[in-house]
C-alpha cells in the first residue's frame, strides 16, 4: 500500500483515550458540556469535526456506520464523512437507519425509532445554549453551575411578546433530566420530542468549541416552555409528494422559477423505505396545477 497508513479510525490512541474519558463523564452528567482537547481534523470546522472525533473514538471494526446531513444520506457532508471512515476504519456503511449501529447526524434525528444497540452522534456548531444571551464563558459556566436559566426564559418570552408565539424553530433549548439546559444542536424543534426517553445513547460533539455532551438512554428531555405557551413541534401542513407521509419532517423544494414547490421527506431513508413498501405519491389531481 502506498497511501499513508493511519491508525484505525484516523485518530491516534492517546487522542481516543482523551475523548473516551470525556464521553464517560458526559454520560455520567447528562446535558453537561465536558471540555475536551479537540484535534485538527482533515476537514474544516463546521463540517462536523466534533461529531467525527466522537464517532472515531467509539467506532469499532464490527460497527455499521450511517451518516446523515439534514436527514439526507446523499449530500456532500454525509458522503465525505462516510468515505472518510470507510477509508480510515474500513467499517461497513449503510443508509438504512435500522441497520446502523452508529449514526452520525447533522441537524436531524432519523424518523425511524432508534433501538438500544444504536448510538446517535450529533455534530454541534455552538454547544452553549446561553452563548447568544451571555457571551462570557465564565458567566455561562456559573449560570449552569447555579441552574440559573431565567435568561433563557426571558428570551422565549420576548419571542412571544414580539411574535405572539415562541418563534424559535431550530436549536430549541431543552432541559435534560431536570438539570442542565442544553442545545440539542440545530435540529428542527419537530425533532425535540424524539430526544426524550430514547432507547439509544445520544452523544454530541462540538469540534471548534471543544465540547462533548450526552443524553443517556431513557432520559427525560423537556423543551423549555410556559404553561400558557406550551412547546409545539412545527411541521409543514402537507404530506410528502414522493411517499405521501404525513408524519415526517418535510423539506420545501423549489422546483422552478415560476414559484412552484414541493414538499418531500427530509429523511431520505425513511422516504425510500416507505416507497419500497408501496406508499406512492399523492394523486396528481390533489396537487395545485402549475401556472402556464
Amino acid at each position: 500500500m502506498t497511501a499513508p497508513v493511519y491508525n484505525f479510525a484516523y485518530l491516534d490512541e492517546q487522542t481516543k483515550r482523551m475523548i473516551r474519558r470525556a464521553i464517560l463523564k458526559a454520560i455520567a452528567i447528562p446535558g453537561y458540556q465536558v471540555p475536551f482537547a479537540s484535534r485538527e481534523m482533515p476537514m474544516p470546522y463546521g463540517w462536523g469535526t466534533g461529531g467525527v472525533q466522537v464517532t472515531a473514538a467509539i467506532l469499532g471494526p464490527q460497527d455499521v456506520l450511517k451518516v446523515i446531513d439534514q436527514g439526507s444520506d446523499d449530500t456532500t457532508n454525509a458522503v465525505s464523512i462516510r468515505k472518510f471512515f470507510t477509508r480510515t476504519a474500513g467499517v461497513r456503511t449503510t443508509t438504512a437507519t435500522l441497520e446502523a449501529t452508529v449514526i452520525q447526524t447533522r441537524h436531524r434525528v432519523p424518523e425511524a425509532a432508534l433501538s438500544a444497540d444504536q448510538v446517535l452522534v450529533y455534530q454541534v456548531p455552538i454547544p452553549e445554549p446561553l452563548r447568544f444571551l451571555e457571551p462570557r464563558e465564565t458567566e455561562t459556566r456559573r449560570m449552569h453551575a447555579l441552574s440559573e436559566y431565567g435568561l433563557m426564559h426571558v428570551k422565549l418570552y420576548e419571542d412571544i411578546a414580539r411574535h405572539g408565539h415562541i418563534a424559535t424553530a431550530y436549536a430549541y433549548p431543552v432541559q435534560v433530566a431536570s438539570r442542565y439546559v442544553m442545545d440539542p444542536s440545530p435540529i428542527p424543534k419537530f425533532d425535540n420530542p424524539k430526544l426524550s426517553n430514547c432507547p439509544a445513547l445520544q452523544l454530541f460533539g462540538a469540534g471548534r468549541e471543544k465540547r462533548i455532551y450526552a443524553i443517556p438512554p431513557y432520559t427525560r428531555v423537556t423543551s423549555l416552555d410556559f404553561d400558557d405557551h406550551p412547546f409545539e413541534p412545527y411541521r409543514h401542513d402537507a404530506s410528502c409528494e414522493l411517499c405521501a407521509a404525513t408524519d415526517s419532517y418535510l423539506d420545501e423544494v423549489i422546483t422552478d422559477d415560476q414559484g412552484n414547490r414541493m414538499f418531500v421527506c427530509s429523511d431520505t431513508d425513511y422516504c425510500e423505505h416507505r416507497r419500497a413498501l408501496g406508499h406512492g405519491p399523492i394523486a396528481a389531481t390533489q396537487k395545485e396545477p402549475a401556472d402556464g
Partner: peptide, 25 residues
C-alpha cells in the same frame, strides 16, 4: 515499528463495554 493494531481494537472494545454500562446503570 507500527503501533499494535490489536491494542486499538481491544481498547475500543473495553471502552465500548464501559460506555454501555455507564449509559445503562
Amino acid at each position: 515499528s507500527a503501533p499494535a493494531f490489536g491494542m486499538a481494537f481491544a481498547s475500543q472494545a473495553a471502552f465500548r463495554a464501559l460506555m454501555e454500562c455507564l449509559s445503562r446503570p
